[in-house]
């Protein structure tokens, strides 16, 4: 574990691990966010390690999905959102004046809770992001599509019906298609917002296996309600409550030996 030596005790009360800037893909500093006058995130500071799976857990409404959406600026869509603090992607402030939002979102892909393939063929779904960029020959594009579908472990199931409607796939296949679609544009970071919560157990296992495989070349950030899932797939886990980062550490440590009582209560299900 190349990051092990970077782990340092963090200031109380939150046990925050602080990766070195070189090892982290995303760095969040002093992030506070409110919907109108309703606060959602309070002064979050954390780094997310490159090519690892980081899970955000916490009760509903704790702000974990909001945090995820800040990372690729989807919160821009809501005019009521007020934000202070910074988010750095590979050392660059993502809210900076020179940053093109579309370019940022290509670098930081996102997969949502319910599968949301577009009403097009399987092929066109994966080609969607590539066509937006343009400048690719059809042949090159088809190669990328095949690579993306293979990476998402979907190729063997759909290679004979790429022209079929994406909506004819099962829920699990749709979710993997959405992942393939995101992979095709070549992101550095993949945000997953409860990607398996709408799926059956077998599809869930497939998605989890996929997440483990993808971290060889991607930084993954996973929001989940499912404690077992966080334990199974993530390398690091952050526990959020009421918009605050309560505890952040290696998944094994956090689940077996949490530093704080609040964390322990939550992961053992004793929270009111």
């Amino acid at each position: 574990m190349p990051f092990a030596q970077d782990l340092r005790p963090s200031p109380d009360p939150a046990a925050v691990i602080d990766f070195s800037p070189e090892a982290s893909s995303l760095a969040i500093r002093g992030l506070t966010l409110a919907y109108g006058d309703k606060p959602a995130l309070r002064d979050l500071t954390l780094r997310i390690p490159r090519h690892r799976v980081t899970a955000f857990i916490g009760p509903s409404g704790c702000g974990k999905s909001t945090l995820l959406r800040v990372l690729n600026r989807l919160h821009d869509l809501n005019d009521e959102v007020e934000r202070t603090g910074e988010v750095y992607l590979e050392g660059e402030e993502i809210h900076g004046p020179g940053v093109a939002v579309a370019e940022l979102r290509r670098r930081v892909g996102m997969v949502f809770q319910a599968p949301n393939p577009f009403p097009m063929s399987i092929h066109d779904n994966v080609a969607f992001g590539l066509r937006l960029q343009g400048g690719l020959s059809k042949r090159k594009r088809d190669d990328i599509i095949e690579w993306a579908l293979r990476s998402a472990a979907l190729w063997d199931e759909v290679k004979d019906r790429l022209r079929a409607s994406a909506w004819s796939l099962s829920g699990g296949q749709q979710q993997r298609l959405v992942i393939a679609r995101t992979l095709a544009v070549g992101p550095e970071v993949l945000l997953l917002d409860e990607p398996a919560s709408a799926l059956d157990p077998i599809s869930t296992l497939k998605i989890e296996e996929l997440i483990r495989n993808l971290k060889s070349h991607l930084t993954l950030v996973l929001v989940t309600h499912n404690m077992q899932q966080a334990a199974r797939v993530s390398d690091y886990t952050a526990f959020l409550q009421d918009g605050e980062l309560v505890e952040y550490g290696p998944t094994d440590t956090l689940f077996t030996n949490p530093r704080l009582r609040r964390t322990e209560n939550y992961i053992t299900g004793r929270m009111a």
């Binding site: 989807l74 579309a102 370019e103 969607f128 992001g129 937006l132």
Partner: peptide, 13 residues
């Protein structure tokens, strides 16, 4: 659904 819109935006549209 908003997810369709967000899906497109998340791909850099």
């Amino acid at each position: 659904p908003d997810q369709q819109r967000e899906g497109a935006l998340a791909l850099g549209a």
